[in-house]
Amino acid sequence: MNNQSKPSSRRKFLLNAGLGGAGAAAAVVAGRQALTGAAPTVTKEARGYHVSEHVKKYYKTTLV
């Protein structure tokens, strides 16, 4: 019962905060529009940059 009531209370809290109401439509429009102009910041992981042991060793040397 507890497990079922928790998500419901979270949902109610978010809706009461105004995140799902009709008034949030403006934020939705602004948010989606903002994304189209922004450079993507994360992408699907590809074989690109990875934290190698070498990189970890370098980061350790920069610690003060």
């Binding site: 949902r11 978010l14 809706l15 105004g18 995140l19 799902g20 109401g21 949030a24 934020a27 939705v28 602004a30 948010g31 989606r32 903002a34 994304l35 102009g37 922004a38 450079a39 910041t41």
Partner: peptide
């Protein structure tokens, strides 16, 4: 759900404004 879409869009807006 609308409240999750609202969260995602606030994150998108703030990400763009801080980008």
């Amino acid at each position: 759900p609308p409240e999750e879409a609202g969260r995602a869009d606030f994150y998108a807006l703030l990400a763009a404004l801080f980008h």
